[in-house]
Amino acid sequence: MRPAMLDGLVEVHACLRFDEEEALVAAHDERLSGTRSTYDLVTWRRARSDALLAPVAAAARGQVLLPDRVPTEERRAFLLPHEDVASARAVITALTHLAGVETECTGPLPPVSFVPAPPI
């Protein structure tokens, strides 16, 4: 995105941390039920995060994956209009009430994850 296209937009970070034991059991159960063909915790985490963060993604102008620190952590940056930050934060923090997931929401931040890298 060109910097001018970022006017009025901010970045919000969502971090979902899944309970490792519950995540392993869920990924294994999905494999056994035929929902998934592999027993892959990262694939399970990504799909689960897609579902949980869908309302934020729908309001966002863009999203990028941020580096995870452990296999049970999903970190994303969302590009949002400033006026949508409060509702995005509410969605993300409401996820804390789900069993097996802790959330962290940071922002609004400058939209640095969405500024294109300069040409080499």
Rank of each mutant, 00 (worst) to 15 (best):
P67F: 11
I92M: 14
D50L: 04
L24W: 08
S87P: 03
S33E: 05
H82G: 13
D40E: 09
A54C: 06
T103V: 12
P116Y: 13
A54F: 08
L24V: 06
T43F: 10
E22F: 04
R69A: 07
R36D: 10
R61H: 14
A58H: 05
W44F: 04
S87V: 07
R61G: 00
L9R: 03
G100L: 10
T38W: 15
P3M: 07
R36M: 11
S87D: 15
T96Y: 14
S33N: 10
P55G: 02
R45A: 13
E102A: 14
R89C: 10
V112T: 15
R17K: 06
C15H: 04
S87K: 12
D40S: 12
R75K: 06
H82C: 11
L95C: 03
R31S: 09
A23V: 06
R75F: 07
L66D: 04
R76D: 05
R48I: 00
A99L: 05
Y39L: 15
D50W: 09
I92S: 15
R46S: 05
Q63L: 13
T103E: 09
A4Y: 11
R48K: 01
L53I: 11
W44M: 02
S37T: 04
E20K: 07
A99S: 11
G8H: 03
D29S: 04
E102N: 13
T96Q: 15
Y39P: 03
H13F: 09
L9G: 04
I92V: 09
A26G: 08
V64M: 07
A88Y: 00
V56N: 04
A60Q: 08
P116M: 13
A27L: 07
A4D: 14
L80V: 01
V70H: 07
R69D: 14
R61I: 02
A99F: 06
E30A: 13
W44R: 02
V112A: 14
S49R: 05
A54T: 01
D7L: 09
P81I: 00
V85N: 01
L6A: 12
W44P: 00
A27M: 09
R2T: 15
E102L: 15
A23E: 01
C105S: 15
L41W: 05
V112P: 09
A90W: 07
T72L: 10
S113P: 10
V56P: 00
D19K: 01
P81G: 06
R45G: 09
V42G: 10
R17G: 00
Y39K: 14
F78W: 08
L6W: 07
D19G: 01
G107F: 11
A47C: 12
F18E: 06
A4N: 14
V115G: 03
A117C: 12
M5D: 14
I120Y: 07
R61M: 10
G8C: 02
A86M: 13
T43M: 10
L109K: 15
L53T: 02
C15Q: 11
A47I: 06
